[in-house]
């Protein structure tokens, strides 16, 4: 059953047009993914706290040059990227916990799992939820490929490519002019590109850079670590990709809130979207 195929053409034309927008696997995966990614992010920040420095190459430890570092002085916290340094007191590297005590861990307690420093527990959460995430992603990718979601909803069509179309869509997004009527039945080009980028690039990249950090898996698949240019490079890419995913999440949520959170939430929970009336109907 195609996403846009089923228009609820009920005779009482007064009500808004309802469309079956998201099929069950999309909705299930969306929410499972939201939960697992949140746990993975927060437990990942705890693991980062154990050594808040990032390197390029095969090795990297305290005596080696870190390209990114979250650190602290006696009274301040800072984030350093290359030679650029910014004061992050109160947020990163130097913050006050809920008992009023000063903490010097990189990420604050409200952002980590668990809230108090425990590398062991952070790893337990991270490495078990990684399984849930990887298995769900694999199943979802298979389903998108054979279930028609990829071909029908995500495939970039002829005419959608091209700078003109991209620029138009970018302008529409910037002006918060969201698709209405027929156009709201389809993903627009920026949506397609970001969903494809997230599902087929960023999310798998998280799994592969994660596996590349495993000393056991290095013996299983030495080529994987070569692909990323070394274990510490893989760790850096893991962190950068997580940041990109967080950025995607923020934009995604902002778009939902701006385009109409009730309608969007209903559609990703129940599947049914209330179609925004087309602009051509003279209501503008």
């Amino acid at each position: 059953m195609g996403a846009a195929d089923i228009l609820d053409v009920s005779p009482q034309a007064a009500g808004p047009v309802r469309v079956y927008r998201h099929r069950l696997p999309v909705r299930l995966w969306h929410w499972l993914n939201a939960a697992t990614l949140l746990v993975l992010l927060m437990s990942g920040l705890m693991i980062f706290n154990a050594h808040p420095r990032l390197y390029w190459g095969q090795y990297g430890a305290n005596h080696d040059h870190a390209w990114l570092e979250i650190g602290s002085t006696r009274a301040t916290g800072y984030l350093r990227i290359g030679s650029w340094k910014v004061d992050t007191t109160g947020m990163l590297g130097h913050w006050t916990d809920r008992d009023g005590a000063t903490q010097r861990w990189a990420f604050p307690g409200w952002a980590t799992i668990p809230t108090r420093y425990s590398l062991a527990d952070g790893r337990r959460w991270h490495l078990s939820f990684a399984w849930l995430f990887a298995v769900a992603l694999t199943l979802y990718m298979i389903w998108t490929a054979i279930g028609g979601h990829l071909a029908k909803d995500l495939r970039v069509r002829r005419g959608e490519w091209g700078l003109g179309a991209l620029w138009r869509d970018l302008k529409d997004h910037a002006r918060l002019r969201f698709p209405a009527g027929e156009a709201a039945l389809r993903y627009n080009i920026l949506q397609k590109l970001s969903y494809i980028g997230v599902i087929f690039l960023l999310l798998p990249l998280m799994i592969f850079t994660g596996l590349a950090m495993s000393p056991g898996f290095n013996a299983t698949a030495p080529w994987l670590i070569d692909l990323f240019g070394g274990r510490q490079s893989a760790r850096s890419i893991h962190f950068i990709t997580a940041t990109l995913l967080l950025l995607f999440f923020l934009i995604h949520v902002a778009m939902v809130l701006l385009a109409g959170p009730a309608n969007a939430l209903r559609s990703i929970v129940t599947g049914w979207l209330r179609l925004p009336p087309a602009r051509e109907e003279g209501r503008e």
Binding site: A50, H51, R53, Q58, Y59, G60, A61, R123, R231, Q232
Partner: peptide, 12 residues
């Protein structure tokens, strides 16, 4: 060989 600490750093 590369020594991988649980904390995240590595040394060869």
């Amino acid at each position: 060989t590369r020594h991988d600490c649980v904390e995240g750093w590595s040394a060869i």
